[in-house]
Design a protein around this nucleic acid. Structure first.
Lengths: 176, 176
DNA sequence: GTTATTGCAAACCATTTGCAAGTGT
DNA sequence: ACACTTGCAAATGGTTTGCAATAAC
């Protein structure tokens, strides 16, 4: 998993408040149907694994967790990649960053809109939410007669820990 | 080159107004010096080529323009890639998007801060500037004791042309 | 003369794809 | 039966890197 700072408690409440009427699997099922595709065992397994927590993750993480599972069927790398693509199209996931040359995904269904501060040193993703930015983007898109479908905002820099001149070993997991 | 919509005329004025005291090459030279690196002929050629216009471009574009030049020395693919990395670190360029699996660069020196609307259908990059967003980001970074060094905001969707139901052949250059 | 740099070709590596065997309806 | 899927292994393709020859100071 990606090291992650989860937002404040208020966020958790809001998540609960979101009117998630159907489960991720059902939602995916629904999307697949519109494309004449099927909800196979493998696809269901992947969706369940992905929505078991709400951490950020990349394809490799998923492959690692699914390709060697003891209980139940295991899922191949190709299928993971193929399914991630459908999940993104279905609006269940979105790519939010690129770390260590890998696309990082996170939930886009049943989870409030937000963006990230990304630490160049330790790679930590810090979530933040800001309605004003979304509003401004709507407005800008309108001005340009642009039909906005989504956005990706990555703020780069150094996180609090990595800024403090070496005390108790700041993170130095990845990146330069 | 990348298909690009240049900002309004006011922007051009503002560019001129920016107090660019030293040329990109000099600025690069300066940075290289701090790293004990040298400003070689190849590096100068690359910087000049890159700052000849202010279009968006990717490594491949540059390689194409520089590896087969008749006049003057030609520059190899490796050197182009290596130099792009230094130029980014030097603050002369920044990566603004990823199109067709390639990183897209643009000037970050002598050019006002802005972001882009990216058409998923034709790949066009439409620039827009908005001070409010920058201000909000400053504020958010502060709240998290995050030392912001830059950001990358990509707004995805369909551009005006590609939204209009097929009249005079909308762009369909790349992407899906 | 050192030390950094270039160019070439080979290596990398995340992601994609062809294809034969398998599965859902 | 028929179309969609899977898994494997091989291919892709942008980017990086090892290394011997070359250039900058």
């Amino acid at each position: 998993m990606q090291s992650t700072t989860t937002p404040d408690v208020a966020a958790a409440d809001e998540i609960a408040a979101l009117n998630v009427t159907i489960s991720p699997v059902e939602k995916f099922q629904e999307y697949l149907a519109t494309k004449g595709k099927r909800l196979t065992t493998e696809r269901a397994i992947i969706v369940e694994e992905v929505f078991a927590g709400h951490d950020h993750f990349d394809a490799e993480h998923l492959v690692a967790r699914l390709s060697s599972r003891k209980e139940g069927r295991s899922v191949s790398r190709s299928t993971v990649y193929r399914t991630l693509t459908w999940l993104e199209e279905a609006g269940l996931l979105r790519k939010v960053a690129r770390t260590n040359d890998r696309e990082v995904y996170e939930h886009d269904y049943g989870y409030p809109q937000h963006d990230h501060l990304i630490c160049k040193q330790c790679g930590e993703l810090i979530e933040f939410r800001n309605q004003a930015i979304s509003d401004i983007l709507d407005q800008i898109a309108n001005q340009h007669n642009f039909r906005m479908e989504g956005h990706r905002l990555e703020v780069y820099g150094r996180c609090e820990k990595c800024c403090r001149p070496a005390q108790r070993r700041p993170g130095k997991l990845n990146m330069i």
